[in-house]
Design a protein around this nucleic acid. Structure first.
Lengths: 129, 129
DNA sequence: TCGTTCTTCTACGGAGTGTAGAACAAATTG
DNA sequence: CAATTTGTTCTACACTCCGTAGAAGAACGA
């Protein structure tokens, strides 16, 4: 699934942060805000549109073409997407157990606690396939 | 840190799988073996060397220049590297807890069990910084 | 020193990404 | 309906990364 570029990532972040689907122009404005402190540079709308198309193509973004302007939303939540990525990475390894061990070693105590809680909740819900 | 290309990945896999550091030529042969079933195609040694240099530049590979031929080894274990990657991905998210929840939801029962065990072991060894 | 072995330099083509103008389509309004 | 505004698609270019490797240079054994 490959890693996203910087602008792609910003746009996904914007979509993930937003409750409602956004138009290209709204995104453009949003991005300008975000960038104001950094390299405050206004992007062309076409730039945003191009990237949105690419993200749509990668199935990360869903576009509503029935309205004008078109509205865009992330096809899955950031958490889902991120978890999926992590899983992919984990799967690319030959020794999952070892990876998980190292992974836990670098996790904060709070997160470790959270994980324990989650594992207890999940304990009985055996996966089907 | 970005994702590795296919050949880069193969080379890292080879280095990770090997006990000892390897020379470019050894790697070349190793890769030919691996590829025999697939697209059995012999790479030029220079190709391997180029990629090794790039990997060295990315600090994934360490090269011993005191011997001839130079010997190459992975700078960290596959497990470490993978865990680090996972951590990076996790860190890129705004809601780690949620991500971990989703992540656990897609983990096999065996892995869940392993995680429980690991968490118990790690319980007391609080991290310093 | 001569050849062999190994490494470095240089280079090219293809893919992915940031960037956006030009051209085209739809909606709004006079 | 015609003109203007708003929005979308097409096309394109530059830059970086990666796979690939030849040519040229360096080191070592005979």
């Amino acid at each position: 699934m490959a890693q996203l570029g910087e602008l792609e990532r910003s746009i996904m972040d914007a979509l993930w942060a937003s409750e409602n689907p956004l138009s290209a122009t709204e995104l453009q404005e949003y991005l300008e805000e975000r960038a104001r402190e950094t390299s405050g540079k206004q992007l062309a709308v076409t730039t945003v549109l191009t990237v949105l198309s690419r993200l749509e193509h990668k199935s990360l973004v869903v576009r509503d073409r029935t309205v004008r302007p078109h509205l865009y939303r992330a096809s899955s939540s950031q958490a889902d997407h991120t978890a999926e990525l992590m899983h992919e990475i984990l799967g690319s390894s030959t020794d999952r157990g070892e990876v998980l061990a190292r992974f836990l070693g670098s996790v904060s105590p709070e997160e470790a606690a959270a994980l324990r809680g989650l594992l207890d909740q999940t304990r009985d819900s055996g996966r089907s396939a």
